[in-house]
């Protein structure tokens, strides 16, 4: 039976395996005939949405990994607005509202409230948390 998954990622892209594991899991979901409702980044996981992410060429690019999955599977990837803003990850809309000089959220990522996660988890068959 095809299932719908909601994915929660809370691990930092710098100090945990959470993003790498979650990306492999999402890819495997689709290979198995399942689908993913959306991915929600919370806590330090939101750092992955920073458009100014610029790792060395020989290092894993986790942001690019999420962008590729979003494009390949028409996958929605959400970052929590409150934890993102306090970490300096700011959308154009939020930057304008707050009078900030610039914004830096990668266009493939959505800035969303916790309500988006509640909706995702309540409309999915399984919830998986990568921390």
């Amino acid at each position: 039976m095809a299932l719908k998954y909601a994915i929660l990622v809370t691990g930092s892209p710098y100090t945990s395996q959470a993003h790498s594991s979650a990306q492999r899991f999402v890819d495997a979901c689709y290979r198995q005939g399942h689908s993913v409702h959306s991915v929600f980044f919370y806590g330090d996981a939101v750092y992955v949405a920073n458009e100014l992410w610029n790792p060395a060429n020989d290092e894993q690019n986790l942001q690019q990994g999420w962008s590729s999955l979003a494009s390949q599977y028409d996958l929605t990837i959400n970052a929590c607005v409150s934890v993102a803003n306090k970490r300096g990850i700011v959308s154009q809309e939020d930057a304008e509202l707050a009078g900030l000089p610039d914004h830096n959220v990668n266009a493939d990522f959505h800035i969303a409230g916790l309500g988006e996660w509640v909706e995702a988890s309540s409309h999915s068959d399984r919830v998986i948390h990568f921390s």
């Binding site: 919830v127 998986i128 990568f130």
Partner: peptide, 20 residues
């Protein structure tokens, strides 16, 4: 063995809980 099997395993259970 791998992430395909990981996904298949999660399908066998009604929920998952990651302990932090």
């Amino acid at each position: 063995p791998d992430y395909d099997a990981f996904v298949a395993l999660t399908a066998e259970f009604t929920k998952t809980l990651t302990w932090t």
